[in-house]
Design a protein around this nucleic acid. Structure first.
Length: 923
RNA sequence: GCUCGAGUGGUGGAAUUGGUAGACACGUUGGACUUAAAAUCCAAUGGACAGUAAUGUCCGUGCGGGUUCAAGUCCCGCCUCGAGUACCA
């Protein structure tokens, strides 16, 4: 073997490790650049070829930036707490820490084989106590803080306490629980410690409250909104129900506005920003309160269209609304109770999938319209959600389709408040309509009327302009085992923080299951099982998976610091992540929570920037290419793809490792499973068995998983790296097809042969390069750099191939050219680049080499080939002196013999000459 | 339904500000080497038509219009696929 990639790769991986080639430290003489991958959850299955795609791209970029002279931080670690490992522990009894270590070791081995330039001395694991002590520490900071809307940032809770002692909470403008009472300083001071703590809890950024949560029985835990998809758990697909539970939450809603606005400062894809905007769900409008007739109470509604207030026909409450019980009349009681009960039985999923089915019931009660004084019926309907706004709406059927549908269904008359619009067929949601039939709002446009309506509502003291967000506070407890314990203990029902900065370590338990009384697994730990214990008991919940991943990019900057989560000095040096690469599936989970924590830590001055990830690229998924065999019904005979239609067949997935170019290895197939041992085949005309194929997600059950290990064994890591980059644009999802890998492998061999003679002896020429060679090189330098700067990795690989093809044709093996070529190649294929670099006589690592500088002079041409087109159709080419001006080019084209042929005796109406580009004659 | 993204040879894809459509690679076919196969090397390769040939003509970037000297690229209207989201008042 001439190009012995196995030996070369092993040699350099060992050398990099021994010499610490990829270690970085803070160096103020160099500009920093931070390239980060979304760190993996180390699952038991190991990596398939799809996983490293993003890592390879970021590694290429990191190496490129080093060549450009930047001090590059490029770390890796593991998001090692999580449910799958715990489920595995429940099934096998193996401690999650043990399984995690094994999985991490396997990941590390696979990652090392690919030749990444990670600084492993900075590795973090979220499940290490050295790490999660700081996750706990950040939680404590959140607990000890509240959000001040006046300063528009988080402040220490001690500031709030001082204010409460001075003035009570009358002047306090801070996000807090809805049930927070208004009180004076005197009242505050008169309260007991317990009562004061209960009030403070309503302001803290990490707080305990009774909240409607997504309870997932199958997983035995609550889930955050983003962990629930279509009414079932994202992980495992178990049903999720609404349950009122006492839970830790983080007051992310305090940051809603900043999370929304600062999206504009980020270089992220529009789609991810859009998803976050939708998730935050800001809507402006007004809250209006309607007095309830014959009751001393009122109903508050939120509306984005206060301009339509004169079109209110009725009110609708969510079935869970707290006033439902008290206002329902005796006559309607039975009907209402049965409806409320029925609605509560329906799961979130049923309710969602049953949108078309309109249901509701009249309470018998009426509200008083605040402007007209008329009676307005109060209904209950499950199209109104308890969790959004105030759980009640003012129904304006003429202006809202859902209200229109509801009115239509129950035969309620529809008031029309739009001028020159008919609402018999449906609601008018057009914002260009003119308001009519509305007292002081008549004749106004929608925008004018909204403004004026809010003024009137505020003047009357029945409500005010209000902004609502769809974003909910993030539930922060999980009733599981394998996660960060809370640094919290209880005296009675009151939570307190554990003092000091040491980690509250995860205690050992006898089983990873809930207790008989339904308490989380940590309740199994006895007092002495905890390394720290205080009060009556410790908190039994653990933190969610996203806790550790919300700040890991900071720990990489200072991973061994025992006194701080990161030193301010190092955080200031490394700053924001300049390039973040990872999947788009974390759009509203990890990416939103990290932004939230970063803003909080910035408010508290622990770091100096308020967005974590400046630029992000979401790599596409690599899909598998499955192969199929066709079994003739009720037989053990398999028919080839071409003839499958002649029989009744069942399609079976077949392991792609037994298939080459869609041709089945029949012997391997027979050995695959005992049931196929005496399989018979109906072959095609070439005597082969052709398999069918389809592009699907890679998965074990489809037998289409390609692991990097096999390919590295066969072709080498450099080939794998380049092929993954060559496959297509990074952000697009694309099918994996191993066939094409040969092309990339051949390219590296061609490169090798360029610098070796027929006896595989290294051989380069000392001659000075000629013009053609320099042109080829500099063309490549230019394009390779331009393309990587716009993250177009696949075209860089093509460019390098073209260069090697050209140099091969030129028979060029000149040292100066080879030097630069090897540097250009090294981000993509670092092992072979190191080997050739060493053979070229360099004693340092190629990673320390400076990027060759592009010199436009080498691309200067004496002659330019102009395509000549007629009416836009290219007909022939003409080579002309590069110095010719427009008129001269025109003259030369007109004088050309072929021009006459295409003019057919006519005189062109116009001749367009674009210098250095094209000539077009208009007939 | 709404919001994004994408439709280019047999396949993956290229064409950065409108300027030679199909770079680069796979696959296929033919040839060289070989007893043979593999590997390697060389050549052809969007489609149709004409010609012994060099070559030439027409069609061609999901569909239909438009702007322009010139459109894969810009504008308008559709179709298909993928992703996200879904009673958010």
């Amino acid at each position: 073997m001439e190009y012995n990639f196995n030996n070369i790769e092993k040699k350099w991986q060992e050398r990099w490790r021994a010499e610490g080639t990829y270690r970085v430290s803070e160096d103020s003489s160099k500009e920093k650049f931070y390239v980060l991958d979304m760190f993996p959850y180390p699952s038991g299955a190991g990596l398939h070829v799809g996983h490293p795609l993003g890592y390879i791209a970021s590694d290429v970029y990191a190496r490129y930036m080093r060549h450009k002279g930047y001090n590059v931080l490029h770390p890796m670690g593991y998001d090692s707490f999580g449910i799958p490992t715990e489920q595995y522990a429940i099934e096998t009894g193996i401690h999650p820490a043990v399984a995690t270590d094994e999985n991490v070791a396997r990941y590390r081995q696979q990652l090392d084989e690919i030749g990444f330039s990670f600084d492993w001395s900075r590795e973090v694991r979220t499940s290490n106590a050295d790490y999660y002590r700081w996750t706990q520490w950040i939680f404590k900071q959140l607990f000890n803080s509240y959000y001040c809307n006046i300063d528009d940032k988080a402040l220490p809770i001690s500031d709030l306490i001082e204010e409460l002692e001075r003035n009570g909470n009358v002047m306090v403008k801070s996000p807090c629980d809805e049930d927070t009472p208004i009180f004076t300083a005197e009242e505050w001071k008169a309260w007991s410690e317990k009562e004061q703590q209960a009030i403070l809890l309503k302001y803290r950024l990490a707080f305990l409250s009774d909240a409607w949560v997504n309870w997932c029985e199958g997983l035995g835990t609550v889930l955050a909104n983003d962990e629930v998809k279509d009414g079932v758990s994202e992980r495992g697909g178990y049903p999720v129900e609404q349950k009122l539970m006492r839970q830790w939450s983080l007051r992310i809603t305090a940051y809603a506005e900043r999370l929304l606005n600062d999206l504009d400062t980020l270089d992220w894809s529009d789609s991810i920003k859009e998803i976050q905007r939708n998730w935050i769900g800001k809507s402006k409008g007004a809250s209006v309160s309607f007095a309830v007739d014959e009751h001393d109470t009122h109903i508050e509604v939120f509306t984005t269209r206060p301009d339509t207030i004169f079109g209110v026909n009725f009110l609708v409450l969510a079935p869970e609304h707290e006033l439902v019980q008290s206002i329902t009349t005796e006559a309607q009681k039975a009907e209402v109770e049965s409806y409320v009960k029925q609605a509560s039985m329906r799961s979130e999923r049923d309710r969602q999938s049953d949108v078309k089915n309109i249901s509701g019931v009249f309470t018998g009660a009426h509200a008083i319209h605040p402007f007209t004084g008329e009676k307005v019926a109060i209904w209950i309907g499950d199209y109104v959600l308890a969790s959004y706004g105030s759980g009640a709406v003012m129904a304006v059927p003429c202006g809202d389709q859902r209200d229109w549908d509801f009115a239509q269904h129950f035969g309620i008359d529809i008031i029309n408040i739009f001028q020159d619009v008919v609402v018999r067929e449906g609601a008018c949601e057009d914002k260009s309509a003119v308001i009519g039939n509305s007292d002081f709002l008549s004749g106004l446009s929608v925008t004018e009327a909204i403004q004026k309506a809010i003024e009137a509502i505020e003047a009357k003291g029945i409500g005010k302009g209000k902004t609502n967000y769809r974003l909910r506070d993030a539930i922060f407890s999980r009733q599981r085992y394998w996660g960060e314990p809370f640094p919290v203990y209880y005296k009675g029902e009151t939570p307190y923080l554990i003092e000091g900065n040491r980690a509250v370590e995860l205690p050992e338990v006898d089983k990873y299951l809930p207790t008989e009384t339904g308490e989380p697994p940590l309740a199994r730990a006895k007092k002495e099982d905890w390394n720290m214990f205080d009060g009556d008991r410790m908190e039994y919940s653990i933190m969610p998976g996203w806790a550790g991943s919300s700040w890991y990019f900071l720990r990489y900057m200072d991973p061994q610091n025992e006194n701080e989560f990161v030193s301010r000095k190092k955080a200031d040096y490394w700053g924001q992540v300049d390039l973040y690469i990872g999947g788009a599936e974390h759009a509203v989970g990890h990416l939103l929570y990290s932004r939230f924590w970063t803003k909080f830590l910035c408010d508290m001055r622990f770091i100096g920037f308020n967005e974590p990830f400046k630029k992000m690229i979401n790599q596409g998924m690599i899909l598998g290419r499955s192969n199929f065999v066709y079994r003739v019904k009720d037989s053990n005979t398999f028919v080839t793809f071409e003839k499958r239609k002649e029989h009744k067949t069942a399609r079976l997935h077949v392991d792609i490792n037994m298939v080459n170019n869609d041709v089945l290895d029949m012997e391997a197939f027979k050995k695959w499973r005992s049931e196929f041992a005496d399989a018979e085949f109906i072959l095609n005309d070439n005597g082969q068995y052709t398999c069918g194929h389809e592009i699907e997600k890679m998965s074990k059950s489809k037998y289409n998983v390609q692991t990097p290990d096999d390919l590295i064994e066969k072709f080498g890591a450099d080939t794998l790296r380049m092929y993954e980059m060559f496959l297509g644009p990074l952000e697009q999802s694309k099918p994996w097809d191993t066939k094409g890998i040969n092309g990339v492998h051949n390219f590296l061999r061609k490169l090798w042969r360029l610098m070796h003679d027929s006896d595989n002896k290294f051989f380069v020429s000392e001659e000075m390069p000629n013009k053609a060679e320099l042109k080829s090189l500099h063309k490549t330098i230019k394009k390779a750099c331009e393309d990587i700067e716009r993250y177009s990795f696949n075209t860089v690989v093509s460019t390098l191939m073209i260069c090697v093809n050209e140099l091969n044709d030129l028979k060029c093996n000149k040292r100066t050219i080879m030097n630069d070529l090897v540097i250009l190649l090294s981000p993509y294929a670092p092992h072979i680049a190191e080997e050739l670099w060493e053979k070229l006589g360099h004693s340092n690592s190629v990673t320390q080499a400076t990027l060759p500088v592009f010199d436009a002079a080498h691309l200067q041409e004496d002659a330019i080939t102009y395509p000549v087109s007629f009416n836009g159709k290219m007909r022939f080419k003409i080579e002309l002196d590069a110095n010719l001006g427009e008129e001269e080019v025109k003259a030369a084209v007109m004088a050309h013999e072929k021009t006459a042929q295409y003019l057919e005796g006519k005189i062109p109406k116009r001749v367009i000459v674009v210098l250095n580009k094209i000539v077009n004659l208009v007939l």
